[in-house]
Design a protein around this nucleic acid. Structure first.
Lengths: 148, 148
DNA sequence: AGACTTTTTGAGAACAATTCTCAAAGGAGT
DNA sequence: ACTCCTTTGAGAATTGTTCTCAAAAAGTCT
């Protein structure tokens, strides 16, 4: 059994909930993608495995996966939230290109201690750091220059 | 005339657009609030001044204010985007309490140079840094402890 | 001021993402 | 098999946002 499955099963049991077939399919689909995905995309993946799972169930399962600590909401683009799994895959910075929409990732190692010490100062119990940087990726920067 | 009005007027002129009464009312309302606001809240403020401005116009004006550099989209909570004005008010960190929804702000000064040097490394043209920290504010942390 | 051109507007319809409803099905424990 | 919850699919409902369009307003030129 995959580690994530065990984690989810335990989480559900603690809550008196069940690891059903649809939930398992959604879980596997979420872990089959190694980058960000929207609800729509996740639904299509699940459907490819078994057309029996409904979109409503995907929407219902997502918050459970997040509460279980398996997924995180990663960002929002063109009015769609997107998600990604985070098992052994710590929070990172998202560099989002305004022009082409590309997302580059880098680690948070340098920023994290600063935020942590601020948190201590504010007596804030830190659970999650979301750092998104908006701008222009080098490709788009280049082609923008070429136009001028 | 307020500085923000001048900035907006100039911005509009450059684009061949006009500073109309509804736009001015929306602009003033946005600058009358010194914290985050949702579209809904802004609309209610504007309406209190003059019931003639429609919600559609608020939605239409917001992107102009952002492009003019007067407003920024600050974060998203319970599926609503929220905004804030940024004149002489640089980007900051948002500390968002999961339990009570309170938002504390602090400055980005320590984090900014790190992100800037990363940006340079990636040849990324940095336009905006969004840093949101999710967790528990000290009040909620305290009352949570008291329950146990 | 009047005529002309372009932008802007309000109001409500349209749209898209998300949530809700509810009757039927499924699971776990006995 | 029986009971008690939980879960589900399907579509309806809801909500935030965008679009449409005819009428109004603003700016320009004469």
């Amino acid at each position: 059994m995959q580690e994530y499955e065990k984690i989810f099963r335990d989480f559900l049991k603690r809550r008196g909930l069940k690891l059903t077939e649809p939930r398992k399919l959604i879980l596997d689909a979420a872990f089959s993608v190694h980058h960000h995905f929207t609800v729509e995309q996740l639904f299509r993946l699940v459907k490819a495995e078994s057309s029996l799972v409904s979109l409503a169930t995907v929407y219902r399962t997502l918050p459970l996966l997040i509460e279980a600590g398996l997924l995180q909401q990663s960002m929002r683009s063109s009015s769609r939230d997107s998600f990604e799994h985070i098992l052994g895959h710590p929070r990172h910075i998202h560099w989002i290109c305004e022009t082409c929409g590309a997302v580059i990732e880098s680690d948070l190692d340098e920023v994290k201690p600063i935020v942590e010490s601020d948190a201590e100062r504010f007596k804030f119990e830190l659970r999650e750091i979301k750092l998104n940087v908006i701008g222009l990726c080098w490709k788009c920067k280049q082609s923008e220059n070429n136009l001028q």
